[in-house]
Amino acid sequence: MGVGMSWDLQRLFVRHAREINRFLRRRGHSVETAADLTQDTFVRLLAAAPRGNGDNPRAYLHQVARNLSVDLYRRERLVDFVDLPAEDFQGLADFAPGPEAVTYDRQRLAIVARALSELPEQTRMAFEMHRLGERTMQEIATDLHLSVSRTWALIRRAYLHLRASLNDDLI
């Protein structure tokens, strides 16, 4: 079995979201911030294939959550050092995602998870091995007993289906 086949996004969310949320709460984040960062962790999984930890989704999710937490604390620390009167401080832009952005990201996550589940099994496996498992076309073709050109066609079809699903549902 290839690495990517075990990276079922919905299953990972169900299995690890509460754990990631508790991890972020232990790092000192509020309930709301921990919820936002947990969601961002899973959205990040869609946006970027893992580097290292390719065979350990739990470790990868924890690393992403930790990085998002550190980034947020760095941004907050920069603000702490600015000595502004309260009324001037209130006028500063808030760079945290607003409720609309969080809702939008959650909708996109649900759409992508649904679109992945709609793909034929071999197409979904090829896509996950490529996108989440960082496997080459040749490695995937060998594992699935396909030609490289057929593997490329399956992965391209998966990308097109995901893009169409996102465009259809968010327009």
Rank of each mutant, 00 (worst) to 15 (best):
R44K: 07
L72M: 12
T33P: 01
R108H: 09
A47H: 11
L68Q: 09
T103M: 08
D88Q: 13
E139M: 14
Q39H: 15
N21T: 10
E76G: 07
L78S: 05
E100H: 12
L119V: 06
V64M: 14
F89R: 14
I155G: 01
R25L: 13
R75H: 03
V70E: 13
R66S: 01
A153R: 06
R27H: 14
Y104V: 05
F81V: 11
R108T: 10
Q90T: 04
L160N: 05
S147F: 13
L9P: 03
D80F: 03
A17F: 09
A48S: 15
S147Y: 12
P57M: 10
I111F: 13
D168Y: 11
H29V: 08
L119C: 04
R15W: 08
E134D: 12
E87K: 15
T41P: 04
E87R: 15
H29R: 13
S30L: 04
F95I: 04
E19T: 13
V70Q: 10
F81Q: 14
R156E: 14
L119N: 05
A153S: 07
V79N: 03
R124V: 06
G2P: 03
N67W: 04
A158I: 00
L119T: 03
A164D: 14
A115C: 09
M129N: 12
A141L: 04
D36S: 02
G133Q: 11
R163M: 02
D8P: 02
V148E: 14
H16F: 15
A158C: 00
P50K: 01
P57S: 12
R18N: 09
S149H: 06
D94C: 09
R163P: 00
V14L: 15
R75Q: 03
V102T: 06
E139Q: 15
D55P: 05
L9Q: 05
L45K: 02
W152R: 09
H62A: 00
E118L: 03
L37K: 00
A126D: 03
R74I: 08
M125P: 03
L68K: 10
E19H: 10
G54T: 09
A164G: 06
G4T: 04
P120S: 04
R51W: 08
R74T: 13
A101G: 09
L116S: 10
S147R: 12
S149R: 12
A93N: 01
A101Q: 13
S30R: 08
E76S: 10
T38D: 01
L37N: 00
R131V: 13
F95Q: 01
E139N: 11
R25T: 06
L170M: 15
P57H: 08
D55H: 14
L144T: 09
V31S: 13
I140V: 11
E32S: 13
L72V: 05
M1S: 08
R108W: 06
V3T: 07
S117A: 15
L68I: 06
R131Q: 13
A164L: 04
D94Q: 05
V79W: 02
G4E: 00
R108I: 07
T123C: 11
R44V: 00
F95Y: 09
N21E: 14
S117Y: 05
R66C: 00
N21V: 03
R163A: 02
F95E: 04
